[in-house]
Write a protein that binds this DNA or RNA. Structure first.
Lengths: 340, 340
DNA sequence: AAACACCATGCATACGTATGCATTTTGCTC
DNA sequence: GAGCAAAATGCATACGTATGCATGGTGTTT
């Protein structure tokens, strides 16, 4: 029981060759039905499992996918972006369904992660997840492409590159949310979220937001847009700066739920009532969103579907098929933070 | 650039043998300083990475740990226990720090996961995480021990078995929380959480809870304890049943934050004010807890430390050292749900 | 009964690395 | 310059599996 079983041990017990054992366990049609069952029975009885390393080495396939999670540099440990956590969960499930193992790792955008997975044959393909500095990001993507690495990414489409992405229609989501605010009678809109640098998702949300405003013959005040990264604290600070500048607005959209929550806290601490004085909406529908006070109106991204799509498309690439970039729709989730 | 580089390619370029390349890259003292640097430089230049499968096969070490996450069977996909998600994040970090890869997988308690990781040499060791049916669980633990598998688990100590566990002092945590409620003037206590079957953590919390009550010459009413698993919905239903039975109480402890949140919702929907009519406390301090209305008083489990400890101890086992079970203390986090 | 096709199995080898052992090179002593 | 120890390198092999090719066996055809 101590020393590990090998296929030779099984072969000996079954009175066949190691080749036959290997074939039998992989359900090769080359091996006789009866022999196959016998071998499989013996393998099961002896608790034999195929050595993953040897198998991977021989086949040059690892049966493993890697999930690289890029964090906001400002992220503190205690509150990792819950949206990405949901994605992680759904990707984990999707991998299990497909019979793949999942290697999870947090990465600094600056590290040389691009070579660390396929070159080492740790994984057959890579899923990239996270907001990140787009410029630095893009270099790495190009390297991945040059290396013929199979990968997919979550996020906005990268038009210049031949990259398979799965993302949400952020533009439409921002539009939807803002229309809802407008139909609610709101006139003056603040937007909290980084628009200028390296966060295309946030930019799209802002563009959708602005488009809705303009569609209704209202004005977009650039002074009411303030940058923030996707943390509660950053949203809090950003909203605070708006308040301290004495800006007036009756609606506020956070580029993410976390930002919206931080902004909501800043408002409430400064005597504004939500939603009476200021309606607040977020983006993502993280689990927290329904438990806040008031519960947060937001645009839901379907993380379950997203995880499945990412894994499906990655496996298509791994199998040498083509895969298409896909944009998912968002669902407006109306709760009390926006008045109705 | 297409076909993968091997150590032979590096050897050729460096004018040395493959052995020397292997040694140089592993910083073996057998190889001359100058040669080592030259080989490493060439390897870097050619973007060569050691093949993980071949290396693991040869050394019989994978440099990988596996995290098995057992879910509550009742768990719906959208709200995976946030406490375990925090643990996952911290374990991921801890692994990265130690230079290990992390394989993550959700498991049904009933599956034969016990053989699927070390036997296949996918991982050098296993971390078990989750609440689970203890009886079924125990069988599997015994099998793991018999197989000489390296593993550690999160949770209450298993006294009968030689298992390394890292967990919280649930008894003391329950005690702390309840004392706080008592000091707050509360007299009648409800407890929501499964006590009878297979959830030793919850039982300990209940025992600590009861001990505090008895210490203060108050009475523990068994009719005010109702079972629930760790979901918001289950907590909601359980609290609802108490309310519908017309039970009276001025404090409620949930065996976990999720349970407490569900219970709080049930109370509020039925006209009780929290904390005025009923003080509510939870357990875990999940990220959501500070955003609820009112924010939830709870016993914080330090997930960052827990993750580090789990990984440290597992690596001790992997390296043939001994490791000790460890109990972490909980911190009382006072928020508004309990009145002060 | 010979010839053949076909199915099932075995043999031999390669995947890419790490390491025990043999061998060469270097540096030093007398 | 001979002799020797120590340092550096190379050779050969094993890790456990999967698979191309060769071989053996069975049944069918003429």
């Amino acid at each position: 029981m101590k020393s590990k079983q090998t296929s030779f041990d099984i072969a000996y017990r079954a009175g066949v060759s190691q080749s036959t054992v290997s074939r039998a366990l992989r359900n090769s049609p080359l091996v006789n039905e009866e022999t196959r069952l016998r071998v499989q029975a013996i393998a099961k009885e002896l608790n034999y499992k195929v050595d993953k390393n040897a198998s991977s080495l021989r086949t040059q396939q690892s049966g493993t996918l890697a999930l690289l999670l890029f964090e906001d540099p400002t992220n503190d440990d205690s509150l990792i972006n819950p949206f990405f956590m949901s994605m992680l969960a759904s990707i984990t499930r999707a991998c299990a369904t497909k019979g793949y193992d999942l290697l999870v790792s947090f990465q600094e955008m600056s590290a040389d992660w691009h070579a660390d997975f396929e070159d080492t044959r740790k994984a057959d393909g890579i899923i990239l997840l996270g907001y990140g500095d787009y410029n630095e990001y893009e270099e790495k993507l190009i390297q991945l492409i040059e290396q013929d690495t199979c990968f997919v990414r979550w996020g906005a489409e990268v038009k210049e590159l031949q990259v398979v992405s799965v993302g949400c229609d952020n533009l439409h989501g921002g539009f939807q949310l803002t229309e809802h605010l407008i139909n609610n009678g709101r006139k003056t809109f603040a937007f909290v979220g980084g628009v200028s640098c390296g966060q295309p998702e946030f930019l799209d949300r802002y563009l959708g937001h602005s488009k809705a405003i303009e569609n209704h013959q209202l004005t977009v005040d650039k002074g009411l847009q303030v940058d923030a990264v996707s943390t509660e604290e950053s949203g809090y600070q950003a909203a605070l700066s708006l308040i301290q500048q004495g800006k007036k607005f009756d609606a506020l959209m956070g580029a993410s739920d976390l930002i919206a929550l931080g902004a909501m806290r800043a408002l409430q601490e400064n005597g504004y009532k939500v939603p009476e004085d200021v309606a607040v909406v977020g983006f993502d529908d993280i689990p927290i969103a329904s438990f806040t006070f008031p519960p947060l109106t937001t645009a839901k991204q379907d993380t379950m579907l997203a995880g499945e799509l990412l894994v499906d498309k990655l496996l298509q690439l791994v199998n040498g098929e083509v895969a298409e970039t896909q944009l998912m729709t968002t669902d407006l989730v109306i709760r009390k933070s926006c008045g109705s």
